[in-house]
Design a binder for these strands. Sequence first.
DNA 1: TAACTGTACTAATTATGTTAATACAGTTAA
DNA 2: TTAACTGTATTAACATAATTAGTACAGTTA
Lengths: 126, 126
Amino acid sequence: MFELDLRSRKPIYEQLVERLKQLIINNVLEKDEKLPSVRTLASQLSINPNTIQKAYRELEAQGYIYSVKGKGSFVSNSLMTDNAAEIKKVKEQLKKQVAEALFLGVTSEELIQLIQDVEKSSVGEG
Amino acid sequence: MFELDLRSRKPIYEQLVERLKQLIINNVLEKDEKLPSVRTLASQLSINPNTIQKAYRELEAQGYIYSVKGKGSFVSNSLMTDNAAEIKKVKEQLKKQVAEALFLGVTSEELIQLIQDVEKSSVGEG
DNA sequence: TAACTGTACTAATTATGTTAATACAGTTAA
DNA sequence: TTAACTGTATTAACATAATTAGTACAGTTA
């Protein structure tokens, strides 16, 4: 289900958050779909359950999943959660990256094309 | 000159790299302008000179500055350096962020506007 | 020469990530 | 009810990375 780089300087739980976000954003994991339990996923990835839990806790804080004691963790319906804070974060980060890209010589046309490419590849979500 | 968050989970040297990049990109620091010496900046920020040096080393590796022993560290002319690797990194990161923004409900029109805003605010560079 | 510059190195300390073991509470199905 | 699953919490030990501290060397400049 996942590919982790245990040698990376990026913490495992951050890799997990990023990877799971992508799966949710790309609709590989659908709304209300049950995620693997912390113990199951930890076993599959040969890492500690605490590390999985840390990732799940972060994803829940960001509104991507919700957890129910005794039942499991599930993909959120993003429309149910308040995304304002996350949107603000992403926009601020995007501004920095766009400024950097422009500085490095990437044209605004290329960047607009990049947006449209991403948009096309994620049709049919929701 | 800088605002650092010593309590942040983000390492000081990474904050320094990010902040100096912004100053260079926004032309606050001009080409060939001399940066504060590692000892001076360390003293101003009340942190260790080694931490400054680590940030400068990273900025030099990314092509944003160049250092001359005995003279100092200076802002690069970005056109002099090979940005291919950096451009690839930034584009990949941008794709992820754009996908996340779209997922959170930001429209592609908003994103295009964001690009144009950043572009306008950085006129007169180079 | 004196005072500045970048750079390098080692050691100690601190912070963070990760593992390990254990425990508790809620859910589900036999 | 029992057994096996779920999330969650806590504490300790360990590994790694970040940071500090101290020192040293080499090049530059006035």
